[in-house]
Design a protein around this nucleic acid. Sequence first.
DNA 1: GGGCCCGCAGGG
DNA 2: CCCTGCGGGCCC
Length: 708
Amino acid sequence: MTSHSSLPPMAQVRQLPCDGDGVCMLCKVKPSDEDNLSCKTCATPWHLNCLTSRPETIASALQWECPDCTSLSLDLPPATASGGASDDLIAKIREIEADASLTERQKAKMRQELMMRGNACLDGDEKDHKRKRGKEEEMNVGRGGGSNDVLDLLDGSLNCSFCMQLPERPVTTPCGHNFCLKCFQKWVGQGKRTCAKCRCSIPSKMASQPRINSTLVVAIRMAKVSKSIGSGGPSKVYHFVHNRNRPDKAYTTERAQRSGKANAASGKIFVTISPDHFGPIPAENDPERNQGVLVGECWEDRLECRQWGAHFPHVAGIAGQSNYGAQSVALSGGYQDDEDHGEWFLYTGSGGRDLSGNRRTNKDQSFDQKFEKLNQALQVSCLKGYPVRVVRSHKEKRSSYAPEKGVRYDGVYRIEKCWRKVGIQGFKVCRYLFVRCDNEPAPWTSDEHGDRPRPLPVISELKKATEITERKDCPLWDFDEEECCWKWKKPPPPSRKRVATGKSEDIKRSRNAMRRAQNMSVREKLLKEFSCLICRQVMTLPITTPCAHNFCKLCLEDAFAGKTFVRERSRGGRMLRSQKNVMNCPSCPTDISDFLQNPQVNRELMEVIESLKSKTEEENGNCIESSEETDGNEDGDPSSASAEADIENSEITGVVDGVQTLNKSKPKRSREHRKIDIGESSLGAERLKEGNDSPSSPLHMQSDDDFQ
DNA sequence: GGGCCCGCAGGG
DNA sequence: CCCTGCGGGCCC
C-alpha cells in the first residue's frame, strides 16, 4: 500500500489541515492558492507543502482525498461483507458532491451527517437527538429570510461542526469550539481526543465529564424565543434566571451567624407554600418577587435552597411522608447507583446504611433498602402520578447535567416506575425512574418550550428487578393536549401542614431591573447574557473554561496576574511543594491550571458578540454603553448588589491556600482598555513572551496527548 | 480530598 | 422522644 492511510497513526496525527482562516495548523502559514489543496470528499483545505504524501499530477490533485478521509475506513468498525460500509459511505459522499442541485453548505451538512452516522448503531438518546435535529432543520427551512435576525446571527457562528446546527446542550472545548453534548460525546466515544475543529487535544476530564455551557444555552433559547414571537408564533414569555435578580444573601438566624453554617439553623422560608406542597412553586406563593421559583434558579447550598421551598430537608435527599407522597428529591451524588440523563434519571432510595454515632453520611451500605418511610413516599408519588420537584447539586460529579456550583432547581418530574434490585455495593436498593414533565424548559436545553410527553426509556436493569411498581390509574399531574401544558388533572392532595412562613421583611429588591429588562431589545438582552463573570461587562475576548464559565481573556489574566503559582501545603509539620500548580476558576472551585497553560478565545462566541454589538450600536448609537454605566452605579439595583456578592464569593472560592486571589483593589478596566487586538496570542503565549523564568509564568507542562 | 464532628429538621 | 438524613466547616 502506498497511500497515506497505511501510515502509522502517529504519522497521521502529524498531518493537520488549515484552520477556519485558511492558516495551516502545522506550519502556521497561510498557503498561497497554488499550495492550497482541497479534499474532494470533505472539501477541507490543506497545505500542500506540509503533506507527507502529495499528489503527483494535476489530475490526481483534483481527485485528492485528505488524510482524515482516507483514514475514515480505519475508524469504522469492520465491515460486514467485503467492500463494506466504509466504501459505501465514501460512495455516498461522492454522490453528494456530484449533486449539482445542492449548495456548498447543504453538501457540507449532508457530508457531516453521513460522517456522524457512520455505520454504528444509535442508542435511544442518540436517536432522539437525531430526530430532534431533523425537526429543527425543518423549522429552519420555514424560518426564511430575516437577515437582521439574532437567531441567524448565532446560527452562522456558533454551529456545532458535527450536525451543523446550533448546539443542543452546548459544550465548549478548552480551544474555544462549541459542540452539542451528544455530538461531542459520540466523538470522544470513538476514542477521539482532539477537537474536531482545530485538532487541539481534549483534556481527559473534558472528555469524560463535559459540562454544559449554560451561557450559550440561555442565549440560544432567548434568540429562538424572540424569533418565534417575531414570526407570530407562541407569544409565551419565558423567564431567564439571572443571578443578578436573586436576593443578595440568604437569610440566616442570629444563632446561625454565631455558629457558622455548619451548625446553622435554617433561615427564614421566603415562599408561602406548605412543606407538603406538590409541584412547581407559583408566583402567588412568592410574595417577595411575585415570580415563583423558576427552573434554573441556583442557590449556594441546601440551606438556601430550602429557604425557597424547592427542597425542604437540609440533609435528606427525599422530602415526603410515607403514606402521603414525596414532594421533592435532591441529586447530589450520594448514591453510586444513580444515573443521570437530564430529562430522565434513575434515583436510589435512602437507607441501608449504618449511621450510628456521629456518622451522618456513611457511604457504605450494610443492609437492604425497603419500600418504607421516604422510599415508600416516593412509591406513593409514583402510583398517584404526582409531580416531584428535582434539585441537582454540584456534588454530583458524574453527571453532565449537574450545576458546577451550588444547588439548582430543575423543574418537576414524574416517577414512572419503581423497583428493587441489587445495587453496586451488593445490597438491595430501591430504584425510581424519574421522567421530566415541566412546562418550563430544562436549564440545559435551548428549547423554547417545556417537556412534551415522551416514550419511556428502556431500562435494562428491570430484567433483574423485583417488586416492580407501575401506575395503573391516570396520573394526577398530566399533559393536557388541548392546553398544551402539564397540569393537575384532578386536585392535588390536601395539605396536612401549615405554611411555615411569616411575612419576610429581610429581602428588599427593586423591580426596576426587571422592568428595564422588559424594555430591552433581544439583542441587548443577549449581550447581557454574554457578560464576563468577573467584570460583569459584555465579554471582549470570551474564554470558556473547562468548567463552562465564561470570562474576558483580560479579566482572567488579571485574576491570576503576579501570583505565585507553586502550591504549598503543610503536611505532618513539613511544608510540601506540590509538583502540579493548582489554580481555581474564579467562579467555582475547579482547578483550571492545565487550561490556563494555553487558554483559547472562543472565537465563535466572539464573532456573535461583535455582530450583536455593532448591530445594536448601529441602531441605538451609544445607548448600550450609557445604560451599562448607569446600571452599575444605581443604588438598590439588585444586579450590582448581587454582582458584588458574586465577586465576593469568587474571592473565597478562587483562593488556593491564600496564594491566589482576585485583586479586588484593582480598578475596573475601562472599556477603552478592553479594546485590544484579538491576535492569535493566547494567555499562555503572552506569558511566554514575558519570559519563562518570571514568577508569574505558569509552568509549561506537556500533556501526554499533546503532540505539538 | 477524606474523615470527623457538629447541629438541625422532620418522620414516625 | 428517638432515629434518620445525598450538609457543611474544619482539621489533617
